[in-house]
Amino acid sequence: MTQPIGVFDSGYGGLTILRDIVRKLPQYDYVYLGDNARTPYGTRSFDTVYHYTRECVQHLFEAGCRLVILACNTASAKALRNIQQLDLPTLAPGLDGPDRRVLGVIRPTTEVIGNYSKTGYVGILATRGTVTSESYVVEIEKFFPDLAVFQEACPMWVPLVENGEYANPGADYFVEQHVNRLMAQSPEIDTLLLACTHYPLLLDKIREAAPPNITILSQGGIVADSLVDYLSRHPEIDAQCSKHGQRSFLTTDSTDDFDRQATIFYGEPVRSSHLAL
């Protein structure tokens, strides 16, 4: 039986995480699920994000996944804790729920972000939902209590990316606006975290807008390294993940639209199947 690693996102952005995970761990099987029919998650309530995320995780469990990565900052911020603490034993009846795991993208990032800053001042660029949740502030406090954290919500950035405007001059204004607002909070910020998986597509424009010599972090490589470490520390989970180098992609919306957009995020052609929820 195939037991892939599940990777979930509200849309396309999680493909930037999957891309880096596959580069590090190409031998594993993966199934990616994008809830494109209900995206974006960033502006939705905690209860709605939790409900949607829980439903998608349950499907991935039923598809054979023992391990699911929430490659979505909003889902990680608003749903992960409840799923881990309340739902795992009952989420997949008859599927040995306690032996299943759900991980997010926030903790791996917050465990290392302080190592990149020399001034002790870092900035977070994220969706409004992630910023409002305060998840990064709370988690960073656990690992780097002396680190000063500043946040800026960028509500226009995901629509710019998903509408194919991320490389066009029209995006410059919105990128500069939010980078400038964040930097205005403290001139000592020397590290910026792109706390949304869509934002790497805006990386060139963010670099242009940010001060010179500032460190800009994308999450894909960090999450991939964390997964390598996690599997080495949990051989019982690793042993249950099938390793045939297979990739499959699911979307809750149009497969034609998904395949066209996903290729941009994933970096190679994608062929998806439709999932009705």
Rank of each mutant, 00 (worst) to 15 (best):
Met1Cys: 12
Thr2Val: 13
Gly6Tyr: 04
Tyr12Thr: 07
Ile17Met: 06
Leu18Ala: 07
Asp20Thr: 08
Arg23Gly: 02
Asp29Ser: 09
Tyr30Trp: 03
Val31Met: 03
Asp35Lys: 10
Ala37Leu: 09
Pro40Ile: 05
Tyr41His: 01
Val49Lys: 04
Tyr52Asn: 01
Arg54Leu: 12
Ile69Gln: 05
Ala75His: 02
Ala75Leu: 08
Ala79Glu: 02
Ala79Asn: 06
Asn82Trp: 02
Gln85Ser: 15
Leu86His: 13
Thr90His: 13
Leu91Tyr: 05
Leu91Phe: 01
Pro93Trp: 12
Pro98Arg: 11
Arg100Lys: 15
Arg101Pro: 03
Leu103Val: 10
Val105Trp: 08
Pro108Gln: 05
Lys118Ala: 14
Lys118Trp: 04
Tyr121Leu: 06
Tyr121Val: 06
Gly123Asn: 06
Ile124Thr: 01
Arg128Asn: 08
Arg128Asp: 10
Gly129Ile: 08
Gly129Val: 09
Thr130Phe: 07
Thr130Gln: 07
Val131Asn: 03
Ser135Lys: 12
Val137Gln: 02
Glu141Gln: 14
Glu141Lys: 15
Ala148Lys: 15
Gln151His: 14
Cys154Lys: 05
Cys154Gln: 01
Met156Glu: 02
Val158Gly: 06
Glu165Cys: 09
Asn168Met: 15
Pro169Glu: 15
Glu176Asn: 13
Asn180Ile: 08
Leu182Glu: 03
Met183Ser: 05
Pro187His: 12
Ile189Gly: 03
Thr191Asp: 04
Leu194Met: 15
Ala195Val: 00
Ala195Glu: 08
Thr197Phe: 10
Tyr199His: 11
Tyr199Val: 04
Leu203Cys: 10
Lys205Tyr: 07
Ala210Phe: 14
Pro211Gly: 10
Pro211Asp: 09
Pro212Gly: 12
Asn213Glu: 14
Ile216Asn: 06
Leu217Phe: 04
Ser218Glu: 06
Gly221Ala: 10
Leu231His: 08
Pro235Lys: 09
Cys241Tyr: 00
Arg247Ile: 08
Phe249Asn: 00
Ser254Gln: 09
Thr255Glu: 08
Asp256Gln: 15
Arg260Cys: 10
Ala262Met: 03
Ile264Pro: 05
Gly267Ser: 07
Arg271Leu: 14
Ser273Met: 14
His274Leu: 09
